[in-house]
Amino acid sequence: MSNTNKLAVNFCGVDFKNPLIPASGAFGYGREFEHFYPLSTLGGISVKGTTGTKRNGNLPPRIAETPSGMLNSVGLQNPGVDHFIKIELPNLKTKDTVIIANIAGSTADEYREIAEKLDKTDVDMIEVNISCPNVKAGGAAFGVTCEGAASITKIVRAATSKPVMMKLSPNVTNIAEIAKAVEAEGADAVSLINTLLGMRIDIKTRRPILHNNVGGLSGPAVFPVAVRMVWQVANAVNIPVCGMGGISRWEDVVEMMMAGAKTIQIGAALFANPMAPVEIIEGLEKYVSDNNLNSLQDIVGTVKPW
C-alpha cells in the first residue's frame, strides 16, 4: 500500500486502503455491486451474516420504509459457512480489498464451529454479530448482557487467531459496559451499531408491515444514536472502533470518525444510492486535502466535548 494514501488505515493489524466498508447484509457478497464500481474501490467488505448451516430467513414482507430509514427482518437468510468458504470467499479474495466474514449463531457451539472453520481460510477478519434483532434464538440474546457478550467473545477468541471484531447491539441500557466486557475477553475491535428494534403498522389492515411484526431500524434516522454510542464506546475501551448506523455522505463519515471511529460501515444508504461509497471516498479525499491533513486518521476522536 502506498504511504501517500492519506485515507489508509491500519485497523487491528489489517491494512485498509480507506476506512469505508459496506455493512453486512446490505451488500451480499459484493457480486451485485460490481456493476457499479470495482470492489477494489472499497476499504473492505463485511459480507452477509453467515451461520453454521443454511437458513431460509423470515417470511416476507421483510422491509418497511420509515421516515429517513427502514426496518428489515431478513432473519439471516444465507447459504451457510461451508458454501461461503467454498464459493464466495475465493471469489472475494481476488478483489483486492479486505474481506470481513460476519458470523452469527443460535448457540455458543455454533459460533465456535464457524470461527474454527474460518480460521483455516484466508479471510482477513471475523466480525461477530451478537446483535441481530431478527432471529428468535439468535445472537441478540447474547449481545444484550455483559455476560452473554463476554462468553461469545471468549469462545470465538479461543477458536481463531484472526482479528476478532465484536458487533454490538444498540438495544441495551449501557453499550459502553458491553464494549468493556468484550474487550476484557480479548476482542481486537468492536463495531457498532447494529439495527434498533422497531415496528410499523399498516393502519388500514391493522397488520404490522413486517411479517415478523418487528424488525431492525437503520438508515439516516439512526445516525445521531450511532454517533452517541460510538463516542461512548470509544471513550470506554482501548481497542479500535468501527462505526456505523445511518451514514450516507462523506460528512457523516467525518462526524463518525470525530466521535472515535477508525473505520466505518455503510448499509441502508446503498439502496437509494448504490454509488455512495465512490462519492464518499471522493469527498474524503477532498476533505483531507482542503484541511491539509497528513492522514484522515488524524481526526479520529477529536470531538471537543463541552
Binding site: 446490505a26 451488500f27 455491486f33 421483510r62 418497511a64 431478513v74 437468510q77
Partner: peptide, 15 residues
C-alpha cells in the same frame, strides 16, 4: 414484493 437494493444483495424481497 417490497424491495430494498433491487439488485439481489439485501435479501428483503423474498417470495
Amino acid at each position: 414484493e417490497r424491495m430494498g437494493c433491487g439488485v439481489g444483495a439485501c435479501l428483503v424481497c423474498a417470495c
